[in-house]
């Protein structure tokens, strides 16, 4: 069940991504609708983070291409916001909550310029939206996991982007934070923003997302939630890796087979 859409927010065309010559994503071909809350779901090692990172061109593609709002990513960077996994940074870094949220304004500021008063006000506003304004001067080392996630979200909001890529924003957060985040996502979607979220829990996915991408090294399904979150497709996604696919991948890794790589 792979449904394509007209005038998509994201178009992934025949994308293959390799890691040390070993394909981790095979021939992904999908389109994501604008203004939707999209869940990317699959088992560990399915390549979910790799997919969104290659959508933003953080990881080189072996073949295929990605277009965002029908443009090359580099032309629309200011409209793209990324919320990395919170474990990807060192929270012992000497910075305050406000410092981190202000980073969301850097794209607009450009090089050399310092944040202006207006940027501080936007940042403070975003902290309010995630319920963290009382913590603006707090050291990031003193935050709980849920609070760290909220700070990352506030930083993304401060970018005032059109499309948001979030890597497991619900991982390791408390119930109150989860509720606050999903409330925000819905609000963003109502304003026409597109939100792409990597998610683990199938139960809540049914309720949270209106578009689902099922992934396990290859694309299993992409379509409206009701049509994709069905037992047969979930079975296909979680029913283990395709052994032949994995074996071929391992062989390519071992032989340093470069046939697919762009030169």
């Amino acid at each position: 069940m792979i449904q394509q859409v007209e005038d998509p927010a994201v178009e992934v065309h025949d994308l293959t991504v390799t890691y040390h010559k070993k394909p981790v994503l095979w021939d992904i071909d999908l389109t994501l609708p604008r203004g939707a809350i999209i869940g990317i779901i699959g088992p560990n090692g399915a390549g979910k983070s790799t997919l969104i990172k290659s959508m933003m061109n953080l990881i080189p593609h072996s073949s295929g291409y990605v277009r965002i709002f029908d443009s090359n990513i580099d032309e629309v960077r200011p409209q793209v916001s990324y919320v990395p996994q919170k474990e990807s940074v060192d929270w012992d870094f000497p910075a305050s909550v406000m410092d981190v949220v202000l980073m969301g304004r850097y794209a607009r500021l450009g090089l050399f310029k310092r944040p202006r008063k207006a940027d501080r006000e936007v940042a403070l506003d975003c902290l309010k939206k995630v319920g963290m304004e009382a913590y603006k001067s707090r050291q990031i080392a003193q935050l709980s996991g849920g609070q760290q996630q909220r700070v990352f979200l506030a930083r993304a909001l401060a970018q005032e982007a059109e499309i948001y890529f979030m890597d497991e924003p619900f991982a390791g957060v408390d119930a109150a934070t989860e509720k606050a985040i999903i409330g925000l996502l819905r609000e963003m979607s109502e304003k026409g923003k597109t939100v792409v979220v990597i998610h683990h829990d199938i139960q809540s996915a049914l309720e949270y997302f209106n578009w689902i991408v099922l992934l396990n090294m290859r694309l299993v399904a992409s379509g409206p939630t009701q049509e994709t979150l069905i037992p047969s497709l979930l079975e296909e996604t979680y029913g283990g890796k395709l052994t032949l696919l994995a074996e071929v991948g391992n062989l390519m890794h071992k032989k340093e087979f470069t046939g697919r790589d762009k030169r």
Binding site: Y82, S88, D90, F93, D99, A107, L111, F112, Q159
Partner: peptide, 23 residues
């Protein structure tokens, strides 16, 4: 002093710096 903001960002979160188009 001139690149304080930029160096701070690439020390804290390099992937984010890439996504916002910083060189």
């Amino acid at each position: 002093a001139l690149l304080f903001k930029e160096f701070t960002l690439i020390s804290f979160d390099v992937d984010f710096a890439k996504t916002i188009g910083f060189p």
